[in-house]
Design a protein around this nucleic acid. Sequence first.
DNA 1: TTAGAGGCTT
DNA 2: AAGCCTCTAA
Lengths: 370, 370
Amino acid sequence: MLEAKLNEAATLKRLLDAIKELVQDANFECNEEGINLQAMDNSHVALVSVKLSAGGFRKYRCDRPIPLGVNLGSLTKVLKCAKDDDICILKATDDGDVLSLTYEARNADRIAEYDMKLMDIDSDTLGIPDTDYEARVTMPASEFSRIVRDLSNLGESVRIEVSKEGVRFASDGESANGNILLKQTEAARERYRNYGEDDGSDAEEVKDEDDDEEGRSKKTKVKKEKVKKEDGAEDEEMEDVEAVENAETNGDAEDEGEFKAKSDDEEGEEEVSDSESKKKRKRPSTSNGKPKKKAKKSADDDLPSGGVSIEMTQHVNLTFSLKYLVNFSKSATLSDTVQLMLKNDVPLLVSYTFGQGHIRYYLAPKIGDD
Amino acid sequence: MLEAKLNEAATLKRLLDAIKELVQDANFECNEEGINLQAMDNSHVALVSVKLSAGGFRKYRCDRPIPLGVNLGSLTKVLKCAKDDDICILKATDDGDVLSLTYEARNADRIAEYDMKLMDIDSDTLGIPDTDYEARVTMPASEFSRIVRDLSNLGESVRIEVSKEGVRFASDGESANGNILLKQTEAARERYRNYGEDDGSDAEEVKDEDDDEEGRSKKTKVKKEKVKKEDGAEDEEMEDVEAVENAETNGDAEDEGEFKAKSDDEEGEEEVSDSESKKKRKRPSTSNGKPKKKAKKSADDDLPSGGVSIEMTQHVNLTFSLKYLVNFSKSATLSDTVQLMLKNDVPLLVSYTFGQGHIRYYLAPKIGDD
DNA sequence: TTAGAGGCTT
DNA sequence: AAGCCTCTAA
């Protein structure tokens, strides 16, 4: 029995807008910790991974794990019937083949109910290997969208290069070549220091040490540990790495450590309304990425605004298909901030963190990148 | 000889946008009281009825009844040549086979003239029987549009059920079923009490008694009269019906009484611009349904905003083709408010009332509705 | 007031 | 499927 009450249907709507082009059918794996979705795109080039943590819901209950096999096209249709600010309640029985969605207008004078057929889907749960990324770029999601959209008008692929200089996006096209260099902003560096940390298995601790110094020392320690890991990141280059490994690569857990421990919202308070819980957090250290809730652009005190943060242990230089990146960038509706995690010869991770969870895309690099 | 001067060409444009898909050719029946159009759709399933009252024009003159056989496609083309805020003058001679349209820019620095060929059309003027509807639902036109559009994405038809609980729209589709329940809003109930009353032959009186109490007592009286009418509405069930019969069935005037009195623009001042006149109306009792002139959503003082009003004497439950309802809902450009009149086993009436008149659609229910 | 997204039409 | 137009959000 699943019953999940989401404060805003818009979250789901945006989520589906973000992935429905990539994937047709997918299992929403529901368990007591929340709802997860993981799927390869049709051409098996990209992987998308979504997490909605139980704590992100206004109310959440899932007695036992249920996989909900959903045709995303159908779900999109049904979600179109919801207004953005409707309260959305998801319901499913343990054995049922139906997902029920209820939309309640804020003033409760309209209640809509939709029942959607579910389907059986082979869930080849692909373990996502932990990776010690060599570079992490945190930037405004809108800027990322703009860059990949711009470059996609010129060429097919983009070369992403992270160096001391900054991060460079370069594309060669028939009629023109283009490249954009983003330099790091010091303020952004500070601001994003702990961004995305909520995903680590040590989220609790990170949460406690909001303060910069503590955080940094902690990070540094973790870094050292990191270094010993596979695929040899050169030690001596490790000057900038405080958080790099943390976000994605902490722990030595082979496969799922990353997502399993993501219980930031859950533990604190579980029945608070979403907006409330947002307000309670003083620092975006755990989960920020205030969606797009007409987020005040920059005046706000605790949310990241603008600027680019770059952390790297290694000069990286990879080439990716722009088509996919453009697709990924649709998730900008879910979060103001995006994080790119790179490592040479390894799939890129594009991660959007929002109030209820996160959405992550993995994309293998093109070979023969120069 | 017809000469009619319309304040805004936009009214006509929207009107034609609303019906041109439903009907190809139709007679504009002009007489001293205004212009009427009545036609079945191509498949003879739906009927559309338009009225533009003489009083709604800035200037109107029609010495004797003239039927103008118009190809709506042609008229649409010609109207496309007008700017929305152009003053539009329609002219036709008694015997002529040409309709002349003149567009004057507001500042008179541009005058365009178009002559359109008319045609002979068999006018099988279908008498629309007066009906004692069992339920009347008054709601924002945009909400109605939204509902039928949403449901049309799921299924072919919609079941509309009016009960004490409210009004429910339900549709079954292949991939999902859906239903929307609208509860009555008390405020809306009050607000719409007299809505649509302008159509009565006694509109003048209604106009004088803007006040609620007076209006209500009047209504009640009319109701009593109503009851005696055909098609037996049960008397004893008449608890909520003050206005139900009024909107559509009032009076014994067979045909044209309805719009004559609707001369708000005309009498007060007859050369004011439309927008000005709008501001002057204090009550929506006669003509409200502020078109779409980017009407401020709700802050305005004199227009109905939001909310659903339901009046019923009988539990009704009918099924209709969504395709047609979606089509009807295009008239939302003409009025903010729509009224649904229902009675079991009888065609649904969908009515939009706007400044210059109204547009009404009749749609037979599908049989076999449960 | 301007830009972006969604719906509708061709 | 692409372009146009409208409506909505910033």
